[in-house]
C-alpha cells in the first residue's frame, strides 16, 4: 500500500508537470516512476487507516481557515503551551500515517507538532491559547 501511494504520487506530479495526457507521455511517466528506487523496508498500512487519515487531513483545511480568521481577529492572545497528544496508531506506525498526522496537526494555525515521543506513541504539540477565553 505504501509503495502504491508513492508511485501514484510520482505519476500525479509527472502528469501535472508535463500537462500532456498522450499515451507516450503517460508511458514515460509510468516507467520513470517505477524505475526510481522505492523505499526498501515499509511498515504495514491498511487502506482503511490511510483513507481515514487522508479524510481527517482534508477536513482540517476548512477548520484551518476558521482558526486563522479567529486568530487574526483576536489580536491579544496568547499564552503558548506544550502538551502531549496521543498518536492515533500506537507503536510502530507507517511513515505515511505519521506524515498525515503531522500534516493535520501543523496545518491548523493554533497547533504545531514538535515531534514524536515515547517510541511513536504520542506527539508533542505546541498550542496557542487565548487568555480571556476559557481555560
Amino acid at each position: 500500500m505504501s509503495r502504491l501511494i508513492v508511485i501514484a504520487l510520482r505519476m500525479l506530479i509527472w502528469l501535472l508537470l508535463s500537462a500532456d495526457p498522450e499515451l507516450l507521455n503517460v508511458a514515460i511517466g509510468l516507467a520513470v516512476s517505477l524505475a526510481l528506487p522505492l523505499p526498501r523496508r515499509v511498515r504495514a498500512l491498511s487502506p482503511g487507516q490511510f483513507w481515514r487519515a487522508l479524510g481527517d487531513s482534508v477536513t482540517a483545511l476548512p477548520q484551518a481557515y476558521s482558526q486563522a480568521a479567529r486568530l487574526l481577529l483576536h489580536r491579544r492572545l496568547e499564552e503558548s503551551v506544550v502538551h502531549d497528544e496521543p498518536a492515533r496508531v500506537g507503536g510502530r506506525a507507517s511513515s505515511v500515517l505519521v506524515f498525515l498526522d503531522v500534516f493535520r496537526i501543523t496545518l491548523t494555525p493554533f497547533t504545531i507538532a514538535l515531534g514524536l515521543e515515547g517510541g511513536g506513541r504520542r506527539y508533542r504539540v505546541h498550542e496557542l491559547v487565548f487568555e480571556e477565553k476559557e481555560r
Partner: peptide, 24 residues
Amino acid sequence: WPLLVLALLSLVVWNTIFGYVLAA
C-alpha cells in the same frame, strides 16, 4: 490549471511540513 494545481499541492503539503521541521 495543471501548473496551478501542482503549485497548490506542493505549497500546502511542503510548507506545512516545513513549519513542523523548523519548529522541531
